[in-house]
Amino acid sequence: MSLQVDLGNFDSRGAVYNFALKMTFRAVLLAFLFNLAVLPLGYALGLMPLSLADAVKLSVAGSWLFGGAVSGALALLTGHVIRELSVSRAEFERLSRTDMLSGLLNRRAFNAALAETGPGASLAILDIDRFKAVNDGHGHCAGDEVIRSVAGILREVFEDEHLIARLGGEEFGVIIRGGGLAQRIGLVERARNLVEARVIRCDGAAIHTTISAGIAEFASDLRPESVYSAADCALYRAKAGGRNRVVHETEEGNCDRCDKPAAEASAAGMNPFIGEPVPVAG
């Protein structure tokens, strides 16, 4: 008879009542077995004036009345406490993976997903164009509103099928799963078009913005940081090519900005774009 408690089972009130019911039956059974065990001792010592049948009936009633009622109430209270702890733990975990401004996943959650993604997916790194000019011209509140608006568009385009995260500042990352390459690129283009068409209003000002994006493909022979580096270089080419563009890693162009930092970081065993140690093969 196991008394082990799994906090994952306390995600609903029904689970709490189920827990209390199980604990009540266990308590009743234990109380009844205890009473049966002490009955012979009571008769041997002359402390039991009742007949055996009456003593058994009294044991059953006492087990339910005291063991069942008291343990049931305590189990119900304990179950509610455990459920609150379970809900709090789940909420804490969710908050630790969420960017508070945009409501998207944060970099921690993105890095974890990046390491687990395999072939058949694309990585898009998106950056709001001339974001500093928005902050300088309209204030940081307007900048925050622009970030929230772009995040909303990304949610609208990619929905729950793909992973969307704010990587920091005005930069976002999307892991696009499934479909063909053209379809995945088309989703990023759709997001770019929607951002370009959106008018963001803040304190009476109408703000227009655009995004640039770089896309790279996951492959079985590529490490996640290599995919990130390729997408980041494609983003750099999109910026250098005039902004408000989507560039795939296969498009021709140089990325001198990435070569030297990447080489230096690789020699140091670090990923220059994710900012975390990279395991070095033996």
Rank of each mutant, 00 (worst) to 15 (best):
residue 148 R to T: 09
residue 48 M to L: 08
residue 68 G to C: 00
residue 162 H to S: 11
residue 46 G to K: 04
residue 137 G to W: 03
residue 4 Q to V: 13
residue 146 V to H: 14
residue 69 A to G: 02
residue 122 S to M: 13
residue 207 I to T: 08
residue 126 L to Q: 01
residue 155 R to F: 01
residue 227 V to D: 11
residue 187 L to G: 03
residue 180 G to F: 02
residue 264 E to W: 00
residue 42 G to D: 12
residue 141 C to N: 14
residue 85 L to R: 08
residue 35 N to V: 04
residue 113 A to L: 01
residue 130 R to Q: 13
residue 4 Q to L: 14
residue 39 L to S: 08
residue 232 D to T: 10
residue 259 D to M: 04
residue 262 A to T: 06
residue 123 L to D: 02
residue 150 V to N: 07
residue 221 D to L: 13
residue 70 V to T: 06
residue 83 R to N: 06
residue 277 P to K: 07
residue 184 R to H: 04
residue 137 G to M: 05
residue 44 A to T: 01
residue 167 L to K: 03
residue 152 G to A: 07
residue 177 R to L: 06
residue 277 P to H: 03
residue 219 A to M: 08
residue 280 V to G: 07
residue 243 R to T: 10
residue 276 E to S: 14
residue 77 L to P: 01
residue 122 S to N: 15
residue 27 A to E: 02
residue 221 D to I: 13
residue 246 V to D: 04
residue 174 V to P: 01
residue 141 C to S: 15
residue 29 L to G: 15
residue 129 D to W: 12
residue 202 C to E: 11
residue 240 A to H: 08
residue 132 K to L: 06
residue 143 G to D: 13
residue 47 L to K: 05
residue 204 G to I: 14
residue 227 V to F: 03
residue 103 G to Y: 00
residue 59 S to L: 07
residue 208 H to P: 01
residue 39 L to A: 15
residue 3 L to R: 12
residue 128 I to G: 00
residue 116 E to L: 06
residue 79 G to F: 06
residue 215 I to K: 09
residue 22 K to L: 14
residue 19 F to R: 07
residue 268 A to D: 07
residue 64 W to E: 04
residue 197 A to K: 12
residue 223 R to E: 15
